[in-house]
Design a protein around this nucleic acid. Structure first.
Length: 686
DNA sequence: CCGGGGTATT
DNA sequence: AATACCC
């Protein structure tokens, strides 16, 4: 995506659109829009330098990543509608493996006699040969890239670049060759031209700061040096694994798979500052981080089982490169309590301070410049309780929802019985092996409610339809029983596929972003066309004028695309225009002007559900009581509807070859999460 | 080598 | 837990 944070801020506040805009984190401009770049503002520039270059620069704080994170996942999820093989790289890049989509497209087009050209640029203006099957496949990929970019723009308002190539390395490199809001395809004859166009090994993704320094020390700083280097020399310096990998990269070869990312494996919150040197200050800052994290983790729905604290200490000479961290397991009673807000804070603070004291002797002077708190080892909550609890406890009067134990007592107990010791094989780390229920079952109620999770509002509970009540209770039992079945799946599925109505109550609030697929963009568009700034015009000129009105026109290979007679590709503007307008988006119903209208993405999806085939008014699962439903908060209603719509088709999970390691470490999660296609699956237990 | 995130490997 | 990589 082009200058991602700046784009998001311009969507949130369209008045920023035609102004030079910088996103500020502390004293640095981390990114800026193209308007600002015209003045010489660059990424990671000091604020004062940027102000010198561009006194009118508008600065927006980007220290809270929430809007960017949410938009980032929307984009990833949009890509996942095309194929589940989507790998995130940071917030603003994704790899997508379109191999199968290309197969399908080519099969469908087989024998129709038309030979598609490439959509967008071709690297180094190489001429495509329509009789070359490899070329045809790349060309097909370029059309998919075009559809995806059109969908990103139409539905989320985002512009960006795409590279189409035969592996991840090359795709990434080629994607940057035409910069903002354009796409480039790479044909195999140009592979070496591309890779050799880099003038330093450090520019190869995968070769970072350290590796490039070591290569330099061997006298290998250019790509050709690394390509020609005897492998034995590299092996001596880096070991066999890294040696082979970097040499392959230097030749443009990359056999790594696109590994579906799924929901994040850890979530963290950090802040940096000039100085923090007292324990009370540390506690305040730590608790801020922690509270932010608790909000995020409860939206995610999974339960963290590991807590990590990272600090950076000031040292006059050695100002960089010094982060230290300590981590510990989160004892079950604490982690189980994390869903609902607040009551876990004291216990977690206690853990954090113990971690802190492993690194810092508080009796001595210290000077911190950064604190980071991280939740990791995220596992699906195995009972219904955290998810239903998230919804039910929100309005619950404290008294009604409070479990028997005084929380203070519980915390103290926690602190006492689970001391953090440097080398102790902590007793609490011993997993409640096989048959043990991990969810504590309250024992204080008498009726059938005795199995209710603590913390839920009985009044709300009693108003739920009976089937739902039953399911909640069954869920509790199942939670207890299922840990035995989790012998293999325990370590396995960090995220189980959604099952049952209970998942509907676990939803996070819809992202708090303004709608993008709406009149704002149209308006902006006409404004920019009317001649505001060059940068905005430059960007929009890479899309057809009427891109918001894009509607399906039949086949991707529609003859109306007027491909160059012999398959040669178009140049930017024309090709973008044609591809953007005529390519049939997969989400055809959403890109039609009727349903795209003024609706935000989620609403648009609901419109799609109606427009497309299934005409029932509200597709309620039969277990849902409409009366209860209608009393739910509106956001919840919307999310439920969106969810129901998506449940109908059960996407199959394609089995793909991945590297063994990738499989071993992530196959579980990716497999499980691939089945869920909800917009919000990243914010709930999936 | 700044900022606020992420990932995998050792 | 540290170190490497990515944005």
């Amino acid at each position: 995506m082009d200058c991602f944070y700046a784009q998001v801020e311009m969507i949130r506040n369209p008045e920023l659109r035609n102004k030079p805009l910088g996103i500020q984190q502390k004293y640095i401009v981390v990114t800026c829009n193209y308007e600002a770049r015209k003045f010489g503002v660059t990424k990671l520039m000091l604020i004062k330098d940027a102000r010198e270059k561009c006194p009118q620069l508008v600065l927006v704080s980007g220290e809270d990543l929430t809007p960017y994170r949410e938009m980032s996942y929307r984009a990833t999820e949009l890509l996942e509608e095309f194929s589940p093989q989507v790998e995130r790289l940071g917030f603003d890049e994704n790899y997508i493996d379109v191999t199968e989509l290309v197969d399908k497209k080519l099969q469908e087009e087989r024998g129709n006699g038309r030979n598609p050209g490439v959509c967008g640029h071709v690297y180094s203006d190489q001429k495509m040969n329509v009789n070359n099957w490899a070329h045809v496949r790349i060309a097909a990929g370029s059309h998919i890239a075009s559809e995806i970019r059109a969908a990103l723009y139409n539905r989320l308002g985002l512009t960006g670049c795409a590279g189409t190539a035969s592996n991840k390395l090359l795709a990434k490199l080629v994607s940057g060759t035409h910069k903002p809001n354009q796409q480039t395809a790479l044909l195999h004859e140009s592979h070496s031209h591309l890779i050799n166009s880099l003038d330093h090994v450090k520019q190869i993704p995968g070769i970072g700061y350290k590796t490039s320094k070591r290569l330099e020390s061997l006298g290998l700083s250019r790509i050709s040096d690394l390509q020609a280097c005897p492998i034995t020399l590299l092996e001596k310096e880096f070991g066999s694994s890294v040696a082979h990998r970097i040499q392959m990269l230097s030749r443009g070869e990359d056999d790594s798979a696109v590994v579906p990312s799924g929901p994040p494996q850890s979530i963290s919150d950090e802040d940096s500052f000039k100085k923090c040197s007292t324990v009370s200050e540390v506690k305040i800052k730590m608790e801020e981080r922690l509270r932010n994290l608790l909000v995020r983790i409860s939206k995610d729905g999974r339960i963290p089982h590991t807590l990590r604290l990272t600090i950076r200490q000031f040292s006059p000479s050695n100002k960089w490169f010094n982060r230290e961290s300590r981590q510990c397991p989160i004892p079950a009673h604490i982690s189980q309590n994390i869903g609902a807000e607040c009551q876990a804070v004291p216990a977690l603070m206690e853990l954090l301070m113990r971690l802190f004291e492993k690194m810092i002797d508080v009796k001595m002077q210290f000077h911190l410049t950064l604190l980071n708190v991280c939740f990791s080892n995220l596992k699906a909550s195995n009972s219904t309780r955290s998810s239903i609890g998230f919804y039910l406890t929100r309005k619950a009067p404290p008294a009604a929802a409070t479990p028997l134990k005084g929380s203070t007592e519980a915390e103290q107990h926690t602190a006492e019985s689970f001391p953090l010791k440097e080398n102790s094989s902590a007793p609490h780390t011993a997993p409640q092996t096989v048959g043990q229920p991990t969810a504590p079952v309250p024992t204080n109620h008498h009726t059938m409610l005795e199995t209710l999770p603590e913390g839920i509002d009985l009044e709300v509970f009693s108003q739920l339809p009976e089937e739902i009540q039953q399911e909640i209770i069954a869920g509790q039992r199942h939670a207890a029983a299922s840990s035995s079945s989790s012998v293999r799946s325990a370590s396995k599925s960090q995220a189980a596929p959604p099952k049952g109505i209970l998942n509907f109550f676990s939803r996070a609030k819809a992202a708090d972003l303004p709608s993008q697929c709406d009149g704002v963009l149209l308006k902006e568009h006409s404004q920019t066309n009317r001649g505001s700034t060059e940068a905005t015009q430059g960007a929009s000129s890479n899309f057809p004028k009427g891109v918001v009105d894009v509607r399906p026109t039949g086949s991707l290979w529609d003859p109306k695309q007027e491909m160059h007679p012999f398959g040669q590709s178009y140049d930017t503007d024309q090709s973008a225009e044609r591809c953007g307008t005529t390519a049939e988006p997969m989400d055809s119903c959403c890109s039609s002007s009727t349903s795209c209208g003024q609706l935000p993405p989620q609403s648009a999806e609901m419109e799609c559900a109606k427009a497309g085939g299934d005409q029932e008014r509200a597709p309620f699962p039969h277990s849902v009581d409409v009366n209860v439903f209608s009393q739910l908060p509106e956001e919840v209603q919307r999310e439920l509807m969106a969810e129901w719509k998506q449940l109908k088709p059960t996407p199959k999970i394609p089995v793909r070859k991945q590297s063994e390691k990738a499989k071993a470490s992530r196959g579980k999660r990716t497999g499980a999460s691939a089945g869920a296609s909800s917009l919000l699956k990243y914010f709930k237990p999936s």
